[in-house]
Amino acid sequence: MSEAAFAPRSWRDLPLGNVIPLPMTSLSYKTGNWRALRPLLHKEKCIKCLLCWVHCPEPAIHRHEDDSVSINYDFCKGCGICANVCPVHAIEMVMEG
């Protein structure tokens, strides 16, 4: 997914009816700073079951070609669902900062 840029600076830039003319512009709004707990992925334990990928509410978990996953910290809100659904405990939640 590429980052879409749509940032009106004054009311003169507003489109008619406040229609948002581009798709997925929220990619430039990083929600990663909401996070209090940080998920750490232990790749050697991962069995590529994709449960974290399907259950991530953001989605902040990227599914690679070989079905391995990685976490996008720009958007992860640190809810901890991934760590909770992982059957082999490959994701660990640690305190941020």
Binding site: M24, T31, P57, D74, K77
Partner: peptide
């Protein structure tokens, strides 16, 4: 896309 402001742990995006 991510970057929405639903609560952490929300069930709707799935």
């Amino acid at each position: 896309a991510p970057g929405h402001r639903l609560c952490a742990g929300c069930g709707i995006p799935q």
